[in-house]
């Protein structure tokens, strides 16, 4: 019996995918957990950011830093476009508009007419060149057991984690600052903040832009070791992120990080156990039926967390009544 999946699951702790989801979840936590904005289109911000990076790198030959700047510009524009009509309205309008916008982005980049630009359903490949060119790590194979990384994998993992931790520290300081107090005030009682003379709309917009930018940057980390696939940024991605922040604690800075790690370890373990169960016929299911199971797990987990532990793993109970 092959138990190597246990180690592979452990590898999820540092995988670029976990880093990307941690970062995107942190962005969503800024919007949802701290500000109370129902952004259900974080996947759309991720897609826009990813495409901005990949297209400027592959078609325009931008250097790495300029492509990152393009990502930030793209997500900011998206935040403005979505925020201006909806941030003055009731919370669920933002939810519906953002989820709709995310789907618009996905449908548009998948259009066959745009294949020369976006690659259609196949997405874009090879956006990592400018990043890998900066790699100072000597070529080789690193790691142990089934966890092997080449120099480029190691490079993105290192840079990714350092970046995520820096961003988390930055967000923590932000939330302790006067700016953060206003943001949290908006979550608790928007009118009270307004009565203090604060421009609530502007603060919400800043929060939306910050969270969206983190989503866009997350995609860069996600696509560098693999490729940009439009269907990886469907609504289910936003719901995964929602599960992650609620799992870790939506109103904390390090909750999304912990949540992302736990989330991917659990999914990886579940996949591993299911593969074994299918292989040895412990369960009456086929290999094809194995695919949907992880989504069923996420769905049920999301319901259970919200019902029984809305403050998450490391959240404070006092702040649990989000939005």
């Amino acid at each position: 019996m092959d138990f190597s999946f246990l180690l592979l699951a452990l590898g999820q702790i540092i995988s670029p995918q976990t880093i990307a989801y941690a970062l995107a979840a942190l962005g969503l936590a800024v919007q949802f957990g701290f500000t109370g904005l129902l952004n259900f289109g974080q996947a759309g911000f991720m897609a826009i950011g990813g495409y901005a990076f990949a297209i400027t790198t592959l078609h325009l030959g931008f250097p790495f830093w300029l492509a990152v700047l393009a990502t930030l510009v793209a997500t900011t524009v998206m935040a403005l476009v979505l925020g201006i009509p909806t941030l003055r309205l009731r919370a669920d309008y933002l939810a519906i508009v953002t989820i709709a916008a995310a789907e618009i982005v996905r449908y548009v980049v998948k259009t066959p007419d745009l294949i020369p630009l976006t690659g259609g359903s196949d997405g874009l490949n090879g956006a990592a060149v400018t990043f890998d060119a900066l790699n100072p790590i000597p070529p080789g194979s690193y790691g142990f057991g089934p966890l092997r990384y080449d120099e480029n994998d190691l490079w993105i993992i290192l840079v990714g984690w350092i970046f995520v931790i820096l961003v988390a520290l930055l967000v923590r300081q932000l939330m302790k600052s006067p700016w953060g107090r206003v943001i949290k005030g908006i979550r608790e009682d928007e009118d009270a903040v307004r009565s203090l003379g604060k421009n609530v709309f502007s603060y919400k917009m800043q929060s939306l832009i910050l969270g969206g930018a983190l989503g866009g940057l997350a995609t860069i980390i996600n696509i560098i070791p693999t490729s940009l696939q439009p269907d990886n940024y469907g609504t289910q991605t936003t719901f995964f992120l929602l599960t992650i922040i609620l799992l870790g604690g939506a109103t904390t800075v390090f909750g999304p990080l912990v949540g992302a790690i736990v989330f991917w370890i659990v999914l990886s373990l579940a996949d591993g156990f299911l593969s074994l169960a299918v292989q040895y016929h412990w369960l009456p299911i086929t290999t094809i039926q194995q695919g949907p199971v992880r989504f069923i797990i996420v769905g049920v987990a999301l319901m259970l967390i919200v019902i029984f532990r809305p403050s998450g793993l490391i959240g404070k109970k006092r702040e649990a009544f989000f939005a």
Partner: peptide, 8 residues
């Protein structure tokens, strides 16, 4: 969550 679980 219910939607995700039921759909799959």
């Amino acid at each position: 969550g219910l939607s995700l679980a039921l759909r799959y």
